[in-house]
Design a protein around this nucleic acid. Structure first.
Lengths: 251, 251
DNA sequence: CGCAGTATGTGCGTTAGCGCACATACTGCA
DNA sequence: TGCAGTATGTGCGCTAACGCACATACTGCG
C-alpha cells in the first residue's frame, strides 16, 4: 500500500514522507524514530469521512498533502465548517484531549495522503509527556483560534469575504494555486446557498482574481484575494505562524 | 485579601471556597492541598478585562460565582462572543496550551469572585503531568465545542434563538434565575444590534418566558426557553456534561 | 451521437437584520 | 425637584441572503 518510485508517475505527489506534515516534521529525530515505525500511510479520497459526530476515534491523522474539513451537521442536515486542517496539523485532537469523540464530522475536502497513528500509540507517546504533547497543545491553540475566527466571520462578514477567507485557508494547505472543489461543496462548508457562492465567485472572476470551471478553481491574483478578504484570514494565519513556526525539513 | 466571615453579610455570596469551581473541586485532595495555598481569591467586577488580545497571560482564573466572556474585537470595533466561562471552567488555557496569549479578550460579564493562580505555578503543577493536565485538557475540549457551536449558531440561527442560547448558557453558570445584563451588552456579545436584542427580548417577554427591566433579566419559564432555543445549547451542554461530569463537593 | 447527470447562471419575491433617527421611561444625583 | 445619563421601544428605508424555479452548459458514457 506504501507508494513507490514506480507509481510516482501516476500520482501527482511523489510518495510523501511523514515529515511533509509540519507537526511530524517538527519533532526531534529521537521522537520521530520512535513514532514513525508505527505510522501508516493511507490514501485520503475526496469526501471520505474520517469520523462522524460522536464516533469514538481510533486513529489520529497527519495529512501530508490533503485537506480535511471539520464540520458540524445540524439536525436538519444543514452544515457549517468549523475549521480546516492540512499538512500544518492533525485530525483527532479529541484523542489526547481526553474526550475520545467530538460533536463534529471530519471530511476530506481535497484528496491526498495522510499518515495515521493508532490512538493508543499516541497516548503511549504522550505519557512520556515530552515534546509531542507540547507541540500538539500549541497546534490545538491554533485550531481554537481558527474556530473562534470562524464564529466571528460567520457573524460579521459577507459571502464574498468569507469565500476569500476560505480560498486562502485552502490554498495555504495545497501546492500551487489550484483547487478542486465545486461551488456546491463550498456552499456546504460556508453554510450558505450554492447560488450565493456562484454569485460571489462570479464577482471574483470579474475582478480577475480567480478562474473556475466545473469544480476547478484557479487563483490568479492572490494579493488581490487577500486584499478583498476580511481580517479573519490574517488573524488565523498570523496566530498559526506564531504558535507553530514552520521550518521546512531538510531533504 | 482573603474574604472572611465578617464581610459575608455585605457580599451576597458567602466567601466561596475554591472547590466551588468545578475544575478545582474535581481534583484529588493531594493536588488540592498542593495547589490551593498558592491561589488567591480575587474580586471580579463587572466589565473587568482579564486580558486583551495579544496580552501575555500572567494568571489563570478559576471562577467560583462570576461569568467571563471570551470575545473577539474586530478592527472596526465590532465584537462577537466566542465562548462563556463560569465556575465550570477556567480562563487562560493559552498558558498551558503554550501560546501564552490569545487573539481574544476576556471580560467579566457577571460580577463575582474567582481564584487566580500564577501561570508559572500552574506549569509547575502540570509538569508533574498528572490529573490537573488531563482535567484541563478535557475542559479545553468542552470549550472548543462551545466555540464550534457558536460558529454554527452565528451562521444558521436567528437572534431569538441565539438569545435563548445565550441566556441558557449564562443561567447555567449562575445561582437562581436572574441575571444582571443590559440589552446593549447582550448585543455586543451576540454581535448584533441592540435593537435586535430589544425586539427578541420583547418577543420572549410576550411569551412570558422572561421578565426584564433596565439591566435585570429574570427567566420565568426555563423549559419554554429551552424549547425555543436552537439545538446549539443542548449540544454544548451535553458535551460539557460528558467531558466534565460534575460532582458537587462535600460541604 | 445522444442522453443523463452534474455544474453553473439567473431571475424574483420574501425576509431578517442593519443603520439611523427619535421617542419614551426609569434612576441617581445635585 | 429637576436634570442628566442610561435603558428600552419603535418606525422606516435599505441590503444581503434566502428559497425556489428554471435555464444553460459541460462531460462522460452507452
Amino acid at each position: 500500500m506504501q507508494g513507490s518510485i514506480i507509481n510516482s508517475t501516476l500520482c501527482k505527489t511523489v510518495d510523501s514522507p511523514p515529515t511533509q506534515n509540519h507537526l511530524l516534521g517538527a519533532l526531534s529525530q529521537t521522537v520521530q524514530e520512535r513514532l514513525f515505525p508505527h505510522m501508516e500511510r493511507v490514501p485520503m479520497p475526496l469526501a471520505k469521512v474520517l469520523y462522524e459526530s460522536g464516533d469514538t476515534l481510533r486513529y489520529v491523522y497527519f495529512p501530508t498533502d490533503c485537506i480535511v474539513s471539520l464540520l458540524y451537521v445540524m439536525e436538519n442536515g444543514a452544515s457549517a465548517e468549523i475549521s480546516v486542517v492540512g499538512n500544518e496539523g492533525m485530525i483527532g485532537i479529541a484523542l489526547f484531549m481526553g474526550g475520545e469523540s467530538t460533536t463534529s464530522r471530519a471530511v476530506v475536502q481535497s484528496a491526498g495522503w495522510a499518515y495515521r497513528l493508532l490512538g493508543q500509540r499516541l497516548k503511549d507517546e504522550l505519557d512520556r509527556h515530552g515534546e509531542l504533547l507540547h507541540l500538539m497543545l500549541r497546534y490545538s491553540q491554533a485550531l481554537i483560534t481558527q474556530m473562534a475566527q470562524t464564529a466571528v466571520c460567520n457573524r460579521h462578514h459577507n459571502i464574498d469575504q468569507q469565500l476569500c477567507r476560505w480560498l486562502l485557508l485552502s490554498l495555504d494547505r495545497l501546492e500551487g494555486n489550484h483547487l478542486v472543489m465545486t461551488q456546491e461543496l463550498i456552499a456546504n462548508m460556508l453554510g450558505v446557498r450554492r447560488e450565493g457562492v456562484t454569485e460571489a465567485a462570479g464577482r471574483l472572476h470579474k475582478l480577475q482574481v480567480i478562474d473556475y470551471c466545473r469544480g476547478h478553481i484557479t487563483v490568479l491574483n492572490r494579493p488581490k484575494l487577500e486584499q478583498l478578504c476580511c481580517e479573519c484570514y490574517a488573524v488565523v494565519k498570523t496566530e498559526t505562524d506564531r504558535l507553530l513556526p514552520y521550518k521546512r525539513p531538510p531533504l
